[in-house]
Simulated assay, not measured.
Amino acid sequence: MSSIIFSILGIYIFIAMGYIAKMSFKESIDDKTITLINVYFLQVFLTFWGLLIRPVDATLLFAPSIYLFISILILIISAVAAKKLFLDQKEYSVATVAAIIGNTGNLGIPLNIAIFGEESIPYTTVINLMNVFIVYTIGVYYYSRGSFDVKTSLKNIVKLPILWTAIVAIILSVYGYKPSQEIMKILMMGAYASITMQLFLFGIYLYGTKINEISKTLTLWVMSLKFIFLPSLAFLLLYSIELNSMIKGIIFIEILVPLAIANVNFASLYDCKPKVVTALVFISSIIFLGAIFIGVKVLTYL
Rank of each mutant, 00 (worst) to 15 (best):
S3P: 00
S3E: 09
I8E: 02
Y12H: 13
A16G: 11
M17R: 00
I20P: 01
D30L: 05
D31A: 07
T35S: 14
I37G: 05
N38M: 08
V39P: 00
Q43D: 14
Q43E: 14
Q43L: 15
V44L: 08
F45I: 01
L46Y: 03
L46C: 08
T47G: 02
T47W: 00
W49K: 15
G50S: 15
G50V: 07
A58Q: 07
A58S: 15
L60V: 06
L68E: 05
L75G: 09
L75I: 13
L75V: 10
I77C: 10
D88S: 12
Q89Y: 04
E91V: 08
S93L: 12
A95H: 04
T96K: 03
I101Q: 09
G102I: 14
N103R: 06
N103K: 10
N103E: 09
N106A: 12
I113M: 12
I113R: 10
E118Q: 08
E119Q: 13
T125Y: 02
I138L: 11
Y143E: 08
S144M: 07
R145P: 00
R145Y: 03
G146R: 05
G146I: 07
S147N: 12
K151R: 12
T152E: 11
L154F: 15
K155N: 10
N156P: 02
I157T: 11
K159M: 08
T165M: 07
I170L: 13
V174H: 02
G176W: 08
K178R: 10
Q181F: 10
E182G: 03
E182Q: 11
M184V: 05
M189R: 10
A193T: 14
A193R: 08
S194H: 03
M197E: 01
I204S: 01
L206S: 02
Y207Q: 08
G208V: 06
G208E: 03
K210I: 11
E213D: 11
E213P: 00
S215E: 04
T219I: 13
V222K: 01
V222T: 12
V222L: 02
M223L: 12
L225K: 01
K226I: 04
S232A: 15
L236N: 07
Y239N: 05
Y239D: 10
S240I: 06
S240W: 04
E242H: 09
M246Q: 10
I247Q: 14
I251M: 10
E254Y: 10
P258S: 09
I261H: 07
V264W: 05
F266K: 06
A267I: 12
C272E: 03
T278L: 06
A279G: 15
V281Q: 03
V281W: 02
S284R: 05
S285Q: 04
S285H: 13
I286D: 05
G290L: 15
I294R: 03
V298S: 04
T300F: 09
